[in-house]
Write a protein that binds this DNA or RNA. Structure first.
Lengths: 189, 189
DNA sequence: GTCTATAGCAGGATAGAC
DNA sequence: GTCTATCCTGCTATAGAC
């Protein structure tokens, strides 16, 4: 593996484990086995490296979500699979975890995160509309608002789990969301 | 105002605005008008100061939530008031904002945050149970799971809003949660 | 492309005068 | 209690050899 790839890989790991602030160039170097020279030859600096690493992470998460929201699947299955998927409760969302960082918010990396959120929201919104069209959910529901709500349940579940140091918090947040959705669906039939 | 109080006040502001990592002793000193000596006389160090400051924040948030969840109020009103309360979308929850920080998670401050989450969860859980008792919500709903879900919507709403730099994301996440709850309530009657 | 050496600067804390 | 001076460390980046 080239040093460039090793650096990106190490950065991805550290960004997820420790966040942007804590991802120091030295840690990246140690974890990747590359020296200072390689880092600053391939990247303009820490922020640039993080930007490239997170673009890769974003790609991976896009793929994962596109598979979860496969339009061939019945809409309620898509919603179930998204809501109930096993998640790294205590580590957090690889992108959402970073929004508390000031540098991230003020940089272009923020756009990567926003684009990811918008992508998921689009999938959720579509699934909810499809569920209405197929008669699984009542038409009076505001699918645009609900798509943000369901996405927020996941991002918030990570926060609760980390704050309590208890993975179960995420599991219950997920479960509760599905229960509510299912109840709305049942009432509609 | 004593220097001690000034330091705590400055720390509270900085912790909310910038997080724990970014709250350097120097910034606290500049904002509070106190010198190094005062800081290290009254507190053991940065972490101790943050701990004291966040204990105060926790107290304030406890009071706010106790007022929101006044047991005299009808349960659905309590839930509405909690879910739809205006919030500092882009700044985030004064406590929840900090869970991405490694130092916070590994310190005793984490317990303060966990206790706050548990407090809110208790209020939500009680309100949901009361709503069932009063016939506002169907009994088959899992109130324990749903309380985590609703709390996660708020915490997650902050994440979405910050990641998109768009306050509207929080508003919609809130709105969607209330719409779902209301729909479950209407169906029950 | 990759390395080591070096530099500038800020974070975090201590010492000791007042 | 509060101040200033000082210290050590680690973060971030540059320089220049190989």
């Amino acid at each position: 593996m080239s040093k460039r790839k090793a650096l990106i890989s190490a950065a991805k790991d550290l960004l997820w484990e420790q966040g942007f602030e804590a991802m120091s160039p030295k840690k990246v170097m140690r974890l990747s086995g590359a020296g200072q020279g390689s880092l600053y030859h391939h990247f303009e600096g820490k922020e640039h490296l993080a930007s490239v690493a997170l673009a890769e992470v974003s790609d991976e998460l896009f793929s994962l979500s596109d598979s979860t929201f496969d339009p061939e699947k019945p809409p309620m299955d898509r919603l179930y699979d998204y809501l109930m998927r096993a998640r790294p409760e205590l580590k957090g969302c690889k992108l959402g975890r970073l929004v508390s960082d000031k540098t991230i918010i003020e940089s272009n990396i923020c756009k990567t995160i926003g684009a990811y959120f918008a992508h998921i929201e689009g999938h959720l919104s579509q699934a909810l509309k499809d569920a209405q069209a197929s008669g699984d959910l009542p038409h009076y529901l505001d699918t645009s608002a609900m798509s943000k709500t369901l996405q927020a349940v996941i991002q918030g579940g990570y926060i609760l789990a980390r704050g309590s140091q208890n993975p179960e918090q995420m599991a219950q947040a997920q479960e509760g969301a599905w229960v509510m959705l299912e109840a709305l669906s049942a009432h509609n039939s």
